[in-house]
Design a binder for these strands. Sequence first.
DNA 1: TCATTATATAAGCATATGCTTATATGCGCA
DNA 2: TGCGCATATAAGCATATGCTTATATAATGA
Lengths: 112, 112
Amino acid sequence: MEKTVLHIERAASVLKLLGDKTRLTMAGLLFHRECCVCEFVEVFNMSQPSISQHLRKLRDAGVVRERRKGQWVFYSLNQESEAYPLIETLITHVPDQKEKLDVLERKRMICD
Amino acid sequence: MEKTVLHIERAASVLKLLGDKTRLTMAGLLFHRECCVCEFVEVFNMSQPSISQHLRKLRDAGVVRERRKGQWVFYSLNQESEAYPLIETLITHVPDQKEKLDVLERKRMICD
DNA sequence: TCATTATATAAGCATATGCTTATATGCGCA
DNA sequence: TGCGCATATAAGCATATGCTTATATAATGA
């Protein structure tokens, strides 16, 4: 696992960003694969605008990328971010979120 | 470096705690050695109560321990915390804070 | 072109956060 | 005992955060 040193302000802001259960879980999901907004809406017990706002914060920080595919928008971890190595490390200290993806796949979302 | 997996809520709250420039820097300092409150007051451009409040948050979360020595109070990273491995990892992604300690030592604080 | 679906943005609101100043507490020492 | 220094707590305040509902925008397909 690569290691990079970030400015203290940048590191603090990334930690603050992921210091939210919803966004940290999102990162854990994205660590496995790209996810569609509609999948996040399915996973979290939260309104669609709230999901959208969390994703926007992650995107504004350069932590995730978005890709539109028809009416759907997919998000993925931005591996080019200088914060990626830190984020990768963080995720290994958090329970694997793969189970939630398995549940999703059984639900056969239409976005794929 | 040991690795532990924390509950997602616990991990998020630790990240949130360290997602503040002042507290993240404090952790970086404490990674080198125990520090006295008066040293933090010297390092940060901030009132003494503000320092005290940051330290209290770190202590309430079990991240640091306090030790009274006469009129001074020393804080150290709590290596027994289940969050310690995570914190240790985070710190390696942040610039070394040793320089600030060197400056302090040249100032010959009276607390030692 | 229009209805439908997916997503984003706007606005409002309750609560959290981080600072300040003022004051309280704890300890050492005359 | 009482003063002085170090630290903690209380109270007040401005700003940030995270949610909600309402509405706007974007893409699809009849």
